[in-house]
Write a protein that binds this DNA or RNA. Structure first.
Lengths: 336, 336
DNA sequence: CCTTTTTGTAAAAACGTTTACATTTGGATT
DNA sequence: AATCCAAATGTAAACGTTTTTACAAAAAGG
């Protein structure tokens, strides 16, 4: 188990040329059975482990991927990472994991190091907002979750609009009119589409938008917590809240608990994306569930597929939208 | 932002030799200010990005680390990963993240690929049990959380014994005698030391061990859930439970909720390691908190420090034990 | 003004592979 | 037995760097 043994040592020991050893190991060219066995025996004896880097210099392929997420401690991203890493492993790729803290400059430093390292491709949940940034990508990239229109890249996203629309419609069907939304910044499609879905559902049912009921903050728990408290302090508080991501939903659940308000009784709640608390509290909180792991696997598969296409047949960008599922539990009160 | 520009292109464009360009970029040898500026200008103009791999072939350093964990979706491990990755990034290293599913064979395949890729060092939460496996490591390795005695490697662990002892003592001081433990396998020090701590605290206080009160399963939530239900079904159920990791604790909380038992009233509970549910429920669950992020940073720092020591001055293995903190909340009833 | 030292730069050899091309081998066909 | 062809193997040039060696030019010292 040492790595200071090179292909030359194997060649010498086996009385063949390095080319032959290489051929045996990569199995591309024909080698006689006799020499194959002889070489493999020596490889085993010496515990020879090929140096991937040296090979990469020739082949121009590193068999390395990168997956870039805003925050490695958010379970949603971890799930995407796991999906990507697993598929990559299956296909013989190793994966770098980067966490950008949703900062453009940290993402920039990542891109430089991924360039230096010649990663073959990137699964990216990007921090950059400008399509121009994405246009000048010189490597295969699959965007996940966030998609920048006009960037020219492939992407795997989910049906944010549909999920939010269904969630809101569900509240309306249960008789709610005063429906609040707590959501993140309107920077990316995740924010905008969920907000649109909410808006559209209200419009389609003839419910007027109330600006006090719309809380646009960040995507973190504290936004959910504070916004919920503010909402419930209003002269006429909403009867239902749509929490537009996992952390916000957790914040809302905590705030309602601290306000001594019972979910599904005093206030109705629907979340977006699964989370520990939503599953724990009684009644369990209804959520729009999205296929997080599958987003990761799908992206990895698309990426590796793309790598195989020798020709860069500049096809049109492919955007895959995965469906979501509204899971109904007891957190929504029927107002009749 | 292309990577097909090599040091030769820069050299040609700047009318210097490749050696000079290399010297400018690495800043080791002396270069006149004039040529330095000239070269840097061309570097910028051409958007030259050095190829790390080619450099690695010479320097024998890849500036790549690996961090290996059993399960990337467990928040404890994610926190360790984050610590390691952040320190690595600061020091100019990129980090591979591997998840082994706690399987020895998956760990083996990882080791081979890390060998092929010539990672400089490894932060490892290992799946292997046999010290012999660790003894034949040919790369700098820092073990985290789990430490195999006699493996000859450096490690960063926490005070499992002390934490478990304190937790149990705390329960005893509050008047409890019938104290159960739900813990994982006794394969590694994490399991054994926590169990010993529990045992010792009982012994030191003259409390006899009851085998029915000791649940040894795996480290997952379902073990906590099922074991709790079994415990509470006993003719004489325990008055207090020590849940020996984060997931088990979550399982216990859920089981008690489903059994309609109130924490801190019907049953007392202390957990090991923070978790969402312990922080959420009222009363909040007391836990032994461990410095997860710091375990990652500390390990990375030790590793990088080790890499700097040119001489492999085969010193004795260094085992660092980080302290834990018992955080007391309302989950333990005072029995007087 | 000549010698010695310092400074800046270039040339070339490595690093461990892959691969295009060249050569050898051996069996089949004349 | 001579010839040919395919299969098997060897040779050597790449890949993009770093680093050692060498050498010229400039600076310093007598």
């Amino acid at each position: 188990m040492t790595c200071d043994i090179t292909i030359k040592d194997v060649a010498k020991q086996a009385n063949v040329s390095v080319a032959t050893v290489s051929r045996v190991l990569n199995g591309l060219d024909r080698v006689s059975d006799q020499t194959r066995k002889k070489v493999l025996k020596v490889v085993k004896e010496l515990n020879y482990v090929p140096n991937t880097m040296a090979a990469s210099m020739i082949t121009k392929q590193t068999q390395m991927l990168a997956v870039v997420v805003p925050e490695i401690e958010n379970p949603f991203y971890t799930s995407v990472i796991k999906g990507t890493v697993n598929v990559a492993k299956e296909r013989g790729y190793n994966t770098f994991v980067f966490s950008t803290n949703d900062s453009e400059s940290e993402e920039d430093t990542f891109f430089e190091s991924s360039l230096r390292r010649n990663v073959d491709g990137i699964v990216l949940i990007g921090a950059h907002k400008d399509p121009v940034f994405y246009q000048k990508m010189n490597k295969p990239v699959i965007l996940v979750d966030r998609y920048i229109d006009g960037c020219g890249l492939d992407g795997v996203i989910i049906d944010n609009f549909g999920g939010a629309y269904e969630a809101t419609k569900y509240l309306i069907e249960y008789g709610h009119r005063d429906i609040a939304i707590i959501t993140g910044p309107q920077t990316f499609n995740d924010g905008t589409e969920r907000y649109w879905g909410y808006q559209q559902a209200l419009k389609d049912n003839g419910i007027e938008l109330v600006s006090d009921y719309q809380k646009h903050g960040d995507w973190f728990e504290n936004n959910g917590y504070q916004s919920t408290k503010e909402l419930m302090k209003l002269p006429k508080p909403p009867t239902a809240i749509f929490a537009a991501n996992n952390l916000i939903c957790q914040g809302t659940i905590k705030a309602l608990r601290d306000l001594d308000l019972t979910i599904g009784l005093d206030v109705s709640l629907v979340g977006f994306d699964a989370n520990d608390l939503a599953e724990f509290v009684k009644p369990r909180v209804s959520v729009v569930k999205r296929p997080t792991y599958e987003m990761g696997t799908h992206a990895a598969e698309m990426l590796i597929e793309k790598l195989k296409q020798v020709e860069k047949n500049e096809s049109f960008p492919k955007k895959v939208t995965l469906g979501v599922e509204l899971q109904k539990f007891g957190s929504v009160k029927y107002l009749g």
